[in-house]
Amino acid sequence: MTQKVILVTGSSRGIGLGVLKKHAALGYAVVMSSSSGGEKAAEAMEELKAYGVPAAYVKCDISKSADRQAALDFVLGRHGRIDVLVNNAGVAPLARMNILETTEESFDRLMDINLKGTFFMNQLFANAMISLQQQGLPDYSPRIINIGSISAYTASTNRGEYCISKAGIAMVTALFAAELGGHGIPVFEIRPGITKTDMTRTVEGKYNKFIFEDDGIPTKRWGLPEDIGEAAAALSGGAFDYSTGQVINVDGGFHIRRL
């Protein structure tokens, strides 16, 4: 049986690492990617190697064209195929500022990484997937998954640039799902809710109150990286291919309108 290959951007920790671990457990060859590498990436690689599958790391700042191309070249050079691309890389503002004070520098940084980077990763890898199909690669049914956020529709006026970048990812997903449908390449968005990661650690107290005291989440618990990993595995496994373009909410029911 052909071993499938997954690349997850921003995967040296948090949600991205959770997605990689789930796929490693399913027998995928896994490629970790982040913009910085370092000790975190090295520790995560050791965790992935314990699954007994091929595991590799490629440095990639998705806001840079050369890095995006280098990541694709690395995966194809090493494995000769890419079955699943998960666009998870993203950043929060360096400082939370009200939208009346947000700087152009902060706005541009988030758009370059979260939105532009994700768009052009979709474009680059979609073209590669089409090419591999045309070459007649055996047992090949590629898929793309973009990691969005409940911030796509939840207004946080102290980090508006983040919300806008995530709202843009929803349209990126719709556009590529529409374009690639005829090629048999499904594209999905997973929309995590309040998830316990490094990004949310600084506001843990605020979210604990929201979840456990204010009844903000119907399931009354934090989301975990493995929750997103389970959803990604369902999508990459092909069970939802006819639902291309679909948004999968992994948010404990946050999206439910309640009175």
Score class of each variant (00 low, 15 high):
Thr202Gly: 01
Asn114His: 02
Met97His: 08
Ala232Lys: 06
Pro142Thr: 05
Ile164Trp: 04
Thr202Lys: 15
His183Asp: 12
Met111Pro: 00
Lys206Ala: 04
Gly182Pro: 00
Leu137Pro: 10
Arg13Ala: 14
Phe254Gly: 00
Ile147Glu: 08
Met171Trp: 09
Ser131Gly: 05
Val86Lys: 14
Asp73Ala: 13
Phe119Gln: 04
Gly216Gln: 09
Thr244Arg: 07
His183Asn: 09
Phe125Tyr: 12
Asn87Thr: 03
Pro225Trp: 11
Ala170Ser: 12
Ala178Trp: 07
Phe188Pro: 06
Glu39Ala: 14
Leu85Lys: 04
Asp198Met: 03
Lys4Trp: 00
Asp214Arg: 08
Val172Arg: 01
Gly237Glu: 06
Leu26His: 12
Asp139Phe: 09
Val250Gln: 05
Gln3Gly: 01
His23Glu: 03
Ala167Tyr: 00
Gln3Arg: 15
Val31Tyr: 10
Asp112Gln: 08
Lys220Arg: 15
Pro225Arg: 07
Tyr242Lys: 13
Val247Arg: 13
Arg68Met: 06
Arg81Trp: 09
Ala50Asn: 13
Trp222Phe: 11
Cys60Gly: 07
Met171Val: 04
Leu175Ser: 06
Val250Asp: 10
Thr202Val: 13
Glu226Phe: 08
Ala89Glu: 06
Val75Thr: 06
Val58Thr: 15
Gln3Ala: 07
Arg78Gln: 15
Gly80Leu: 02
Asn122Lys: 10
Leu175Arg: 12
Gln246Gly: 06
Asn88Glu: 04
Met171Ser: 07
Ala42Glu: 15
Ala50Phe: 08
Ala233Leu: 02
Glu43Cys: 02
Asp215Ile: 01
Ala92Val: 11
Met121Thr: 14
Pro218Lys: 11
Ser106Trp: 04
Ala177Thr: 07
Ile82His: 01
Gln134Pro: 00
